[in-house]
Structures are given as structure tokens and as C-alpha cells.
């Protein structure tokens, strides 16, 4: 943060904080690489902080943040050497188009609501594992060490849980729609 960076208000930082997971997901979908996603997310945050003075409280922060993320993504792809990019341009376009059409704020709200119910339906040991992975910030390697299993075994278990959740969400959304 350079010395001419605007002073960040607590409200702005809270918005920026809360936006991190969604910005991360937005970028990961389009980059397909964790390290690159971290890198671009950092650049997005820099821009958002530097332009904090442009943001008016009460306007749609996420829409603004996504537009910045989209721009930074393009800038990253432009300067990155081709070998470093996971997805070719045409694939990114397809992913972007599909993502924008499937996941709008309305569907995300429904998805979130369904997810809450589906988590409650998980067996307690699976629910605890998800909580530890996502809420207690325990890596799969650390979970494995705690539970006497390999990181790969934990990852596979978490994958199965995610698949269960996706199936549950799909059923729930279908039932709601029907």
C-alpha cells in the first residue's frame, strides 16, 4: 500500500474481507491453478484498496469487485507466457459464459440455502471433517496426521462428501423447482 493509498474504512475492509472466497472462486474457475489464483487475487485486492475512494457505500461491492477481477484476469493472461496458462482463451470464454449464466445472485442464494440443509444431513463424522477442513482451516495433510491417515485418504473422503453435497443440492433444487 503506497503512501497515497486512501485510508480504508472498517466497512470497506469488511466488504473486502467477505468478498475473498467468492473472488477466489471466480478466479479459480477461470485459471484452473491455485498459485495463479492466489497471485491474481492479490493483484485484485491491491487495485480494490487503491481505488477504495471510488467506492460508494451502499452500491454493489461484489459487482465492482468482480469487474476488477475480470480486468486483472485479462491483464494476467496477457502478460503470462502461454505455457504457464492452464486454459486456452477459447476455453476460458466458454467457462466464463457458462459460469455467468448458471451462477447469478439468485441461483447462488438458492444454492446456499440448499447447502445449509444438506450439511445438516451429513453423518456427524463427515460434518465434523468438513467443519475442520473449512472452518478450522486444517489442511488435508494436517487432518491426515491428526486422524492417522494419509493426506490422500482425507482428500478422497472430502471429495466423496462434496459429491454427496452436490447430489443433495441438486435434489433439493429440483424439488424446489418442481
Amino acid at each position: 500500500m503506497s503512501s497515497d493509498t486512501p485510508e480504508l474504512t472498517p466497512a470497506f475492509v469488511l466488504l473486502l474481507t467477505e468478498a475473498q472466497p467468492r473472488l477466489f472462486g471466480f478466479l479459480l474457475k477461470r485459471l484452473g491453478d491455485l498459485d495463479q489464483t492466489h497471485e491474481v487475487l492479490q493483484e485484485v485486492n491491491v487495485v480494490l484498496c487503491n481505488k477504495a475512494g471510488d467506492f460508494e457505500e451502499g452500491t454493489d461491492f461484489m459487482a465492482w469487485a468482480f469487474s476488477v477481477a475480470r480486468f486483472q484476469l485479462l491483464a494476467f493472461r496477457k502478460r503470462a507466457i502461454r505455457d504457464r496458462l492452464v486454459f486456452p482463451d477459447d476455453l476460458v470464454s466458454k467457462i466464463d459464459e457458462l459460469d455467468s449464466s448458471v451462477f447469478n445472485s439468485s441461483t447462488e442464494q438458492k444454492l446456499r440455502s440448499a447447502l445449509g440443509g444438506c450439511i445438516q444431513k451429513l453423518p456427524s463424522e463427515h460434518r465434523d471433517l468438513v467443519i475442520r477442513r473449512y472452518a478450522e482451516s486444517v489442511s488435508v495433510a494436517a487432518l491426515g496426521a491428526d486422524l492417522g491417515k494419509s493426506a490422500n485418504a482425507i482428500s478422497i473422503t472430502l471429495h466423496r462428501i462434496r459429491q454427496q453435497l452436490l447430489q443433495c443440492i441438486e435434489r433439493q433444487l429440483s424439488a424446489d423447482a418442481g
Binding site: P21, R22, F24, G25, L28, K29, I95, L98, D99, V102, F103, E108, L111, R112, L115, V130, I131, Y134, A135, S137, R162, L165, L166, I169
Partner: peptide, 15 residues
């Protein structure tokens, strides 16, 4: 997209 969206939602919920 569904898979990463779920990962995002779980992270957003708690992470």
C-alpha cells in the same frame, strides 16, 4: 463449475 462453486460456498460459509 459446480465443484468449484461448492468449494467456494463452503469456504464462504466458514473459511
Amino acid at each position: 463449475l459446480n465443484y468449484i462453486q461448492l468449494h467456494t460456498e463452503l469456504t464462504d460459509r466458514w473459511g
